[in-house]
């Protein structure tokens, strides 16, 4: 468990950003992962008073506040209408309902953990993050950026008709994934995301839904590693299996044929 000297419930995103400039500060998400650390923070910054816990729909976009919980993602009718079972599939294995009622989208995105189900799933969509200082950045760029003192306010999904499917493999149903992947398609072109390698997710665009051979080429140049959950070779095997399954699912979607 971490320790903290001070807690501030931010009254504006600007204030949160200012407070967060100190290295001893931290933005408090759901706290579920943060508590695994033993750091000592001078200031915890809470965004829960800023109305960032909503899922809002505009004609072009769906805007997710950073404090939206994983359970909200899982059960949102708005997200289900736009992306089918994608969000339910990428959240339903995460520990349990109580955990998902605590853990936040912002926490998952900012942490950019290699094993993240959320990052892998979101990368399959046309997704941007809204940072208080830097403004809108595509998620694909954001995951490559070093950790800094900016504050994540929102995650924005383009409602462009992209269809996506999510697969993960876990040793037990609610464990961290051994491997995850997401495949999506838009206007005939396709995107494949492979995460929990166990390192951070990688993605590749394809002009059309990748053939067996094109997929294999992608995986051949993807690095896989070993940790206590599985070895690299098995992960490579799983990546092929899960990607093929996801591709089949997406192909089966009327919008993608």
């Amino acid at each position: 468990m971490f320790s903290a000297q001070q807690y501030v419930k931010a009254t504006s995103l600007q204030q949160a950003l200012e407070l967060n400039q100190k290295r001893s500060s931290a933005i408090l998400g759901g706290g579920c992962w943060m508590r695994l650390g033993k750091k000592n923070y001078a200031t915890l910054i809470d965004l829960s008073g800023l109305g960032l816990d909503t899922i809002e729909e505009t004609p072009e976009e769906i805007v997710l506040g950073a404090m939206v919980t994983l359970r909200q993602l899982e059960t949102s009718p708005v997200l289900a209408a736009a992306f089918g079972p994608l969000f339910a599939r990428m959240t339903e294995h995460i520990v349990g309902v109580q955990f998902r009622n605590c853990a936040t989208l912002g926490g998952s995105v900012v942490s950019r953990f290699g094993f993240s189900d959320i990052i892998t799933g979101l990368l399959a969509l046309d997704c941007e993050v809204e940072l208080v200082q830097k403004g809108r950045v595509s998620l694909a760029d954001y995951v490559q950026m070093p950790y800094d003192r900016d504050v994540l306010a929102r995650v924005i999904l383009k409602k462009n008709g992209r269809r996506a499917w999510y697969e993960s493999f876990r040793n037990t149903e609610t464990d961290l994934p051994v491997l995850n992947c997401a495949v999506s398609c838009l206007n005939g072109s396709a995107r494949v995301v492979v995460g929990a390698r166990p390192a951070r997710a990688v993605m590749q665009e394809f002009g059309q839904m990748p053939s067996e051979q094109r997929l294999q080429e992608m995986l051949d140049k993807t690095e896989f590693g070993s940790n206590m959950r599985a070895g690299a070779e098995y992960r490579r095997q799983l990546a092929g299996v899960l990607c093929r399954r996801a591709i089949e699912q997406v192909k089966g979607d009327a919008e993608c044929r």
Partner: peptide
Amino acid sequence: PVLSCSML
């Protein structure tokens, strides 16, 4: 339902 151990 939440985990009271994970929440401040």
